[in-house]
Amino acid sequence: MLYIKCPFCGYRSQKEFAYGGDGTVKRPELNQNISDEKWNEFLYLRKSPRGKHIELWHHVAGCRQWFKVQRNTVTHEIFQTTKMNEEIK
C-alpha cells in the first residue's frame, strides 16, 4: 500500500486517495480552435513512461484536494508531491 504525502495533510495511506492519471496532460484552452489531432492527443494519447511519471492524485477521503505526484512506475517510489500550483522539480 502506497504511502502518499498529501501536500495539505501530510503522509496518509493510499486508501484515502483516488488516482487521477497523467498529470502532464493539459486541457486545451476554452473557446479556441483546436485541431482534431490536438484534441485527440489531449483526450487519448498517453506516454505512460516506464520510470518517472508525473500524475495527479485526489485526497478523496481527506481534504478533497487534487495534487501532483512524481512517482516511479517500476518501483512505485514517490519522489515528490506538490500542490497544483507548484512545479515538480
Binding site: G20, L56, H58, R64, W66, N85
Partner: peptide, 13 residues
Amino acid sequence: LSHLEYYLQVVWP
C-alpha cells in the same frame, strides 16, 4: 463531485 473539484483545482484554478 470529483469531476467538479478536478476542474476547479486542476484546470481552472
